[in-house]
Amino acid sequence: MSENDMDIRIVNIQKSFGRKTVLKDVSFDMDLGSCAAIVGANGSGKSTLLSILAGVQRGNGSFFYAGEDLMKNPKKRSSLVGYIPQGAPLIQELSARDNLLLWFSPDRLKYESEHGVIKQFGVDEFLKVPVRKMSGGMKKRLSIVCAVANDPKIILMDEAAAALDLVCKQVIRDYIRSCKSQNKAIILSTHDERELALCDKVYLLKGGELSQFGYDGNIDKLVEHIK
């Protein structure tokens, strides 16, 4: 079986906080080389869903890749999945280079700075700058690079482009395109119209239930459904 035939299947993800059910049997599937967007109102459970898939939070259900349930194999999941949380998962007192050393070996750091993802996000330009002196956009770019250091097959992006400048947003969109071309799967939660345009499938999360939404570029219609 070739890699292109493999499915990513998310089956019956459930999550409750006390009596409140946040996710009710959320299921969907996608192919490698595609991008799926999860949209919904604030607090609808998008971040919870992504963090369950990333293994950060516990939840019921299955997350199949190549027929194997990654929920039951955390080691494999950590090597296959890259998770970009909303905030900046960085050590404030250290420089960008130090933060990258947590995820890259020195040799790979050098290579990626010249040819790879570090250069792609422009992080090589501020390797020596301490995190606390960075702008929001610099922190975000660095965070993304840290999160995808393991060259994951599946990338989970939680509102990665929120509150960033236009240049930064463009860099992220370019990255999504390049991932798709490299046959990687991207699941992202977003409120950004142009990011949605890059997605092959758009799912609407409302009242804990996920449904596919036929997004045709009409943002007003999407907003109506989110309400």
Binding site: P74, S78, P89, L90, A147
Partner: peptide, 18 residues
């Protein structure tokens, strides 16, 4: 000033990576 943490993003990312 350096021990007090205001968010849990890094621990979460670290956790997701084993």
């Amino acid at each position: 000033t350096y021990m007090a943490s205001s968010n849990c993003f890094l621990p979460k990312l670290l956790y997701s990576r084993g």
